[in-house]
Computed example of a mutant assay.
Amino acid sequence: MEPDPRFTLANERTFLTWLSTALALSAGGVAMAAVPADVFVPWIRTGLAIVLVTLSALAAGMAYPRWRNIQRALRKQTPLPPPALAAVFGYGVAAVAVIALVLIVLSI
Rank of each mutant, 00 (worst) to 15 (best):
L9A: 10
L9K: 13
A10H: 05
N11A: 08
E12S: 10
R13L: 03
T14A: 15
T14I: 09
F15R: 12
F15C: 01
L16Y: 08
L16Q: 08
L16R: 13
T17G: 12
W18V: 11
L19W: 12
L19M: 11
T21C: 13
T21Q: 13
T21Y: 10
T21I: 15
A22K: 03
A22P: 04
L23W: 10
L25D: 07
S26D: 11
S26N: 13
A27M: 02
A27E: 01
G28Q: 01
G29M: 03
G29R: 10
V30L: 14
A31Y: 10
M32S: 04
M32H: 04
A33D: 08
A33T: 05
A34M: 13
A34V: 07
A34I: 04
A34R: 11
V35T: 02
D38S: 07
V39A: 06
V39E: 05
F40I: 03
F40L: 03
F40Q: 00
F40G: 00
V41F: 07
V41M: 07
P42I: 01
W43S: 07
W43F: 06
W43E: 04
I44L: 05
I44V: 00
I44C: 02
I44T: 04
I44E: 03
R45S: 08
T46E: 02
T46C: 03
G47R: 00
G47E: 00
G47I: 04
G47P: 00
G47T: 00
L48P: 12
L48M: 15
I50E: 04
V51M: 14
V51R: 12
V51Q: 09
V51L: 15
L52C: 07
L52Q: 09
L52K: 07
V53C: 13
T54C: 15
T54W: 11
A57N: 09
A57I: 14
L58A: 08
A60Y: 09
A60E: 05
G61F: 02
M62Y: 12
M62H: 09
M62T: 14
M62P: 02
A63I: 01
Y64K: 14
P65Y: 10
W67L: 05
W67D: 10
R68N: 14
R68H: 13
N69E: 12
I70T: 15
I70R: 15
Q71G: 15
R72M: 04
A73S: 06
L74A: 01
K76H: 15
K76A: 14
K76C: 12
K76F: 08
T78P: 12
T78W: 11
T78A: 14
T78E: 15
P79R: 06
P79W: 08
L80G: 09
L80H: 07
P81Q: 12
P81G: 13
P82H: 12
P83Y: 06
P83T: 12
A86R: 07
A86Y: 04
G90A: 00
Y91M: 07
Y91W: 13
Y91G: 06
G92A: 02
